[in-house]
Design a protein around this nucleic acid. Structure first.
Length: 165
DNA sequence: CCACGGATTGGCT
DNA sequence: GCCAATCCGTGGA
């Protein structure tokens, strides 16, 4: 999986850069909440709030490797997926969630999921017993125009299920 | 009050 | 490779 960290007053690329507003208020909740925002007039992106209440820091979910519920994800996404499991193939299941807005579509995350407490039963995270000894790569973040130099993008080394290499 | 542009995607040239 | 699609929060006037 691939994530990016967004901080607060020292991170111009973060929604929390200018303090708490109606849009980003969820970022200032206690860690463990889900921050879903609408952008480009058509897309949603999800973050997991980190740290203490009032901090305004979160981690953007940019990509995941589909393992279970692949049929459900195919249904949620409205594109042709050939069904191949080889991430090197075009139109493989990699396309299900190799981008922040794609991930939201696949998981059906939208406006109403904003502010969900991930410690509850509705939406939650489990480790699934997946890769534990993997190496994490650090690179610069993607799709932003300010704070570009910060290397706060993280993903599993060698894993092809990312939005960009 | 209103204009701007974005933590993007997918389809078309 | 390029660009349109399409909301709406934010910030400047």
């Amino acid at each position: 999986m691939e994530v990016e960290a967004y901080l607060d007053e020292n991170d111009p690329a973060s929604h929390a850069y200018r303090g708490k507003t109606k849009r980003n208020e969820v970022m200032f909740l206690k860690g463990g909440h889900l921050y879903v925002y609408f952008t480009y007039g058509m897309h949603f992106c999800s973050n997991i709030v980190t740290e203490d209440e009032g901090k305004g820091r979160a981690v953007l979910l940019r990509a995941i490797e589909p393992i279970e519920g692949i049929d459900k994800m195919k249904k949620n996404r409205k594109i042709k997926i050939t069904g191949t499991t080889n991430p090197e193939d075009k139109k493989s299941i990699k396309e299900l969630a190799n981008g922040p807005a794609k991930l939201c579509q696949a998981f059906e995350l939208a406006r109403k999921e904003n502010g969900t407490d991930l410690l509850g039963n509705e939406i939650y995270i489990s480790d699934g017993g997946a890769e534990i000894n993997s190496t994490i790569i650090t690179t610069t973040r993607i799709g932003i125009t300010t704070g570009v130099e910060k290397k706060w993008r993280y993903y599993i080394k060698g894993n092809s299920f990312v939005s960009k290499k």
